[in-house]
């Protein structure tokens, strides 16, 4: 039968088509949503650097999505060579549910394996029609706040913690009042997207909401891509030091024979080239001296607190706030 012949022909074609992927050195970088533009540039720079160092060609493949969702995919077997996720808790989850990254991954690279940091700011429509100045404006009646789902998105968890840090200072550490503040804030959230980029498109492209809680780099990028005549950034009185972290998925990389190049890839993020690229894409570099001064000048001054000084540790916050049945689940249940 003709169709059987066709099927066989396609099966043979398929095998031939999939094979060449293994000829070159290929790295898979599993990352979160807003890093697309950064890694597009960085991968090019690293490929050039690696060719000069070793004469070897390296292709870096990218997978982007909500940070929690991406961690889940790596746990389920997505063969990442390196993970560059939004927060350490997601890489902790990978270490906990399997052997892809070692338990002590965070000690393997400088600055707790965070080559760049960011923070959370507000993006509002041009002219700030609702007069949003600070966190307490977000709980006002009738304000629509756009933020992704903390269950699946790393950025969303930083948003949550930044709001909490504000409430903690505003109410002098009264836990009950802080919780109530967060509950009122999430009552103003009409859509919970799964990732930061989804929330940004909801706000800028679909025109929903009065204020977007966004990664600083994501807010800058939205303005750059979609026009400074449409949106502006509002800097709140206090925000959080968001530390996106990176790790070599050692078990995968060793199996793929890419351990050396994977480690060099992440180390290159700390090099002057990597740091300058981070600043260019609106991430705050950990070694600012390598970055262009005009890039650094774009970052506003914000009073920043860290997770460690405010809440203890990510492991603690993850368990009490974002685990099943944790504080966020209760807040979200109270919405209805």
């Amino acid at each position: 039968m003709r169709s059987i012949q066709t099927l066989l022909a396609f099966a043979v074609l398929a095998c031939g088509w999939m094979a060449p992927g293994f000829a070159d050195t290929t790295l898979l970088n599993v990352s979160y949503d807003p890093t697309r533009e950064l890694y597009e540039d960085f991968n090019r720079a690293f490929a050039e650097h690696w060719r000069q160092e070793t004469g070897e060609d390296v292709t870096v493949r990218m997978s982007h999505g909500g940070s929690g969702k991406q961690a889940r995919a790596v746990i389920d077997g997505l063969a990442a060579d390196v993970v560059t996720l939004a927060l350490s808790a997601d890489i902790d989850a990978i270490a906990e549910h399997g052997d892809a990254v070692p338990a002590d991954w965070q000690t393997k690279l400088p600055n707790d394996s965070a080559p760049y940091t960011s923070t959370i700011v507000f993006l509002v429509r041009k002219g700030n029609p609702e007069g949003i100045r600070d966190w307490d404006d977000l709980v006002r009646e009738g304000i629509e706040v756009i933020t992704p789902n903390p269950k699946t998105s790393g950025g969303a968890r930083w948003n949550y913690l930044a709001a909490w840090a504000f409430a903690d200072e505003a109410y002098g550490g009264d836990a009950g009042k802080s919780r109530d503040f967060l509950a009122r804030l999430y009552r103003n959230v009409p859509v919970l997207d799964t990732g930061a980029r989804g929330s940004t498109t909801t706000f800028v492209q679909r025109g929903i909401g009065d204020v977007l809680l966004a990664w600083e780099n994501e807010a800058f990028l939205a303005i750059e891509e979609l026009g400074p005549d449409k949106f502006e950034i509002v800097v709140p009185s206090v925000s959080i030091v968001a530390q996106p972290t990176v790790a070599v998925a050692e078990a995968n990389a060793r199996r793929n024979g890419t351990f050396e190049v994977a480690r060099a890839y992440l180390e290159y993020l700390y090099s002057p080239v990597g740091q300058a690229l981070a600043a260019k894409h609106y991430y705050r570099p950990v070694s600012p001296e390598a970055a262009a001064p005009e890039d650094l000048a774009r970052f506003p001054d914000i009073k920043l607190v860290t997770v460690a000084e405010k809440f203890g540790s990510w492991a603690k916050v993850q368990a009490s706030e974002f685990a099943d049945g944790g504080a966020f689940d209760q807040i979200f249940a109270s919405r209805r």
Partner: peptide, 24 residues
């Protein structure tokens, strides 16, 4: 899919990727 660009993205997934990159 795992959403690996240029490798495991089908046409519908590629549309989503491009849309998310402001590449309307």
């Amino acid at each position: 899919s795992g959403h690996i660009r240029g490798y495991t993205n089908t046409l519908p997934l590629h549309v989503e990727v491009l849309y998310n990159e402001y590449n309307f």
